[in-house]
Design a protein around this nucleic acid. Structure first.
Lengths: 212, 212
DNA sequence: GTATGTGAACCACTTCACAGCA
DNA sequence: TGCTGTGAAGTGGTTCACATAC
């Protein structure tokens, strides 16, 4: 079944999952690729094609059962179980990641947090006591986590990434504005709003001046 | 010159710009596509091809002048001037956006901030006094901004987006986890770490268990 | 009648490989 | 000799359009 699913397709699955969750809340039981596409801003053909990589979930002439498809997608994505995470860097950014719910979907739990600032280490945010980064290797070697979150400045990000990787972390969410070099076998996802802004202006600058 | 540059290419320009800035700091004067590629984790051919959409910046047998190319890219991207922004939503997330420098590259300045919470409005963060959202239309109609940042909960994001668009905002950075419907002519960039996490687990779940 | 699932056609992006220039 | 710039080839993704099933 996992016969070479294009990466872009995988990237769209969480969007479908979210759309379906929203329909489910509204009490919808069935949805067509057309409707879902309208809601999410994608073409029906693309949705059908994407889903076809994983199975046949719809009924011709009718559409998809919302609850069923949502559940299938959660399983396919692996978000039907819990994942543990370690946060490194508890400055303004790290603190927001911890306390702002929107960045941490259901099923993802930060179980360790590290910082190098002595005035931060030892304090507690939510249920997590912040440890000194010097304890990172020891802590994560004992109790490994699935995913690491890098929220340190760019110039110390590489060593943090190396440390996480050496502790068996297989996935990293990287907020540091830098290009990481990583051991193979480790997956990294970058979160970098600065890049988004900087390419947005490419299109804005050539646009006609703002209308009223 | 702007003869259909692929969107993916534009998306990579800020990465090049950042890599060059870093080389410049290190005092490097010349760089080959090979070296830059190694640094950024991309192939030399891709870098050369991308740059070729905009001109001929290199010297055969030698490479690219770092300072020159960095400057060209800043101009191409439009990040050689200042852009004004309005932030909507000053909760945990919005506050972090304002105070954490990494999300706001050089040249992007938040000049207005709005929230609906009466205990937040009227206070000042940095140089910006937070206004009530009810004043958004009035304020931005008077003094328009280039870009809006949406940092409100998903269920109020659509109305914020509509309001921003109606005030002539041409670009939106959307932190709300939802699929926006937007008036044509408005560019939106989504920042959504939750999606990144949720597609990362697709790959993690099929991986061998974490090594020591 | 209606909407899925899917080969085939199309389009877009990446990589190759080499001519051309310093 | 070394590295750029670029057509051409190759790869990957999207869209079409229709047979198929309800």
């Amino acid at each position: 079944m996992p016969l070479e699913v294009p990466e872009v397709v995988v990237g769209r699955l969480p969007i479908y999952a979210r759309g379906l969750a929203s329909l489910l809340e509204q009490g919808r039981e069935v949805v067509s690729s057309q409707e879902l596409g309208d809601q999410l801003g994608m073409t029906p053909a693309q949705i059908r094609k994407d889903l076809s990589y994983f199975g046949r979930f719809g009924k011709q002439g009718r559409g998809y059962n919302v609850r069923r498809l949502a559940e299938e997608l959660r399983q396919i994505l692996g978000i039907d179980r819990e994942w543990t995470m370690a946060l490194v860097g508890v400055g303004n950014l790290g603190r927001a990641i911890l306390s702002y719910g929107g960045f941490m979907p259901q099923g993802f739990r930060v179980v360790e947090a590290f910082d190098s600032d002595p005035s931060t280490t030892g304090t507690k945010i939510g249920k997590v006591v912040i440890k000194d980064v010097s304890e990172l290797r020891r802590t994560l070697s004992r109790v490994p986590v699935d995913i690491g979150i890098v929220a340190v400045p760019a110039d110390s990000a590489q060593e943090v990434i190396d440390a996480l990787a050496s502790c068996g972390v297989k996935g990293i969410l990287n907020y540091a504005p830098m290009a990481p070099h990583l051991p193979s076998g480790v997956l990294i996802q970058r979160v970098d709003p600065a890049l988004s802004l900087q390419c947005m202006t490419f299109y804005l600058k050539s646009q006609p001046a703002a209308a009223k």
